[in-house]
Amino acid sequence: MEILVRGLVNGVIMAGILGIPVMGIAVIYGMTGIINFAIGSIGVFSAYITWYFMDRNVLLAILLGLSCGFGLGYLIQVLLLTPVFERRKGDLNLFFLITNSLGLIFVGLTRVIFPRPTIRLDLPRLGSLTLLGVSLTGMRLFAVLFVVGCLLLLWLVETRTRVGKSWRATSQNLRLAKVVGINTGQAFAVASGIGCMLGSLGAILWGSLYNLTLTTGFQLTFTGYIIAVVGGIGNIIGGMVAALIMGMVISFGGYGFAGAWQSVVLYGIAMVVLVLAPKGILGSERSV
């Protein structure tokens, strides 16, 4: 019984941590139709900035890292991705190459600016909590609450506010959105900014639990991407469901099979799902 509870709680938490970059990918894809493979590396770059300023003020350092993620995402969209998109609509191969190159550029930049191959972010524990007999550090709980809070906030903004409705409109029919006078370039940029900010938060949390290395970004991106596809790419709820399943597999897998088998089982499941349901668990229609 205790193992079950512990497994469930850990699974939810793992899902929360995995869910953040998944949400980042889903937000960007849902709006722009582009899968940005650079968000993990941009996230790691931002996490290094947070790490650099950690000694002065933890909260400010985190905010700085997140702002950096948002700003980079926004600028990349405005200066590079949107202009390319306007000329070469829907060329997925091209965007695969461009965003991966961008990711490698940020790996390089991180290496140039911060000559430390591995870092660990010692975030404050924010106290700890005992839930159903399982002791949790505040940071892990925060990851879960943050994901739930983000979903709720996104839903409220998109259904209640004028700007949020215009984002939904842009994602549903880009041409018509332009025709009715929505500044779709700005909507794209904001989505890209939010996505990269989520990538940054994912990297910061990752760095507080494990080590961050220069290439952790690609690991974050691809894990996030595969989970997003399993859930139905662009479908944020689907992505969260998939993250929950994967989180549970990781959590319970710890009891059932050795850690070395984890990625085999995890990506095996992903492949089976994609063969049976190529559009993912909940389909790739955008929701939320």
Partner: peptide, 29 residues
């Protein structure tokens, strides 16, 4: 976008609504 701000309003023949939004939300857009 600029032409729309100048007051040129197009009603396209196809794909002229936002399918996943309510009638009222469409009109608001």
């Amino acid at each position: 976008f600029r032409r729309r701000l100048m007051g040129i309003v197009l009603v396209p023949q196809d794909e002229n609504i936002f399918p996943g939004m309510t009638v009222r939300e469409n009109l608001e857009m």
